[in-house]
Design a protein around this nucleic acid. Structure first.
Lengths: 154, 154
DNA sequence: ATTCTATAGTTCTAAAATGGAACTGTCAAA
DNA sequence: TTTGACAGTTCCATTTTAGAACTATAGAAT
């Protein structure tokens, strides 16, 4: 597999995996959603090597997930802010958190609770069908080839 | 970071990342949801090296995502079937597919279309609040420490 | 009886990615 | 003038991955 062209494959999952399909990137995004924005912030909370952090941040900027915004002129300092494209990754992160809560929990209970500002309640994220609103399950879904492809590959 | 103990961290995202946070594992899971079950099936559709495929399948079995089920006695042959724990990864995969459709598409349109058997329509997956049913957005969510942790870490 | 094919791996070596630690450069504050 | 915060870069050892060949079992073909 040539990972450098994975984002051009005829498969939306591959294209997403090309961007966020590694451990550090997912953990960095977690920090972004927890409002971490600066190099030192990521580095100290993740214990990632500075070299890799630098690389991953560049990649996320390159793909338009983060914007590198100056917050000080002298010395030049930047912070990394989620773009809309980055904010749209939220369902992926939440789906992963929820799966972890459900299947990888320990006796102490879940590490974090999520409260929905709109309704005020603690909630779990649920994936539903955009058309009928019912909760989605793998076995209830048929896959068809779309215009961007001939055979089915998810 | 010691990746071998990532699944014991006080963070549900880390625990999930420990299991599915690499490229090959995500692509293997895509194939599982497309009904691929056998070693040769994965190998030929993914072009993954046999060595890595073998390792990843073992890991998925170890974590209870796949079950190794014999389908022939002589010679001994096995296939890999998603467990319920594995089927529950569907929202993660669908969230990634949908993000790819939205943000990484090209002019030809999306590679695959999904039809919901219950309502019969082509749909997109939407993540909603379990309590009020409203679509979730990162900025509408407050994070609190839960029983399994002292500080917030997603 | 011997070769061919299918399936499900394992083994080997070279190349690439990662970890860990130290180093660079700019500026502010003590 | 020295120290510390910040945002990186450089270097080398270790780990992971890619690519290809090899092993093993058994049924089917010659």
């Amino acid at each position: 597999m040539k990972w450098d062209t994975l984002d051009e494959e005829q498969c939306s999952l591959s294209r997403t995996v090309a961007v966020v399909g590694d451990r550090w990137t997912l953990l960095i995004l977690r920090e972004c959603f927890l409002r971490v924005r600066r190099f030192e912030g990521f580095q100290s909370s993740l214990q990632i090597t500075r070299h890799l952090l630098s690389e991953r941040l560049k990649k996320l900027v390159r793909f338009g997930i983060l914007r590198r915004v100056p917050y000080s002129e002298t010395p030049k300092r930047y912070e990394y802010i989620l773009t809309q494209k980055g904010l749209d990754l939220y369902p992926i992160i939440m789906a992963m958190v929820h799966w972890g809560d459900t299947h990888m929990g320990d006796e102490r209970g879940r590490p974090l609770l999520h409260q929905h500002k709109s309704c005020g309640k603690l909630f779990d994220p649920v994936m539903v069908c955009s058309e009928c609103g019912e909760a989605l399950h793998a076995k209830q879904v048929h896959v068809h080839a779309g215009p961007g492809r001939k055979e089915a590959v998810a």
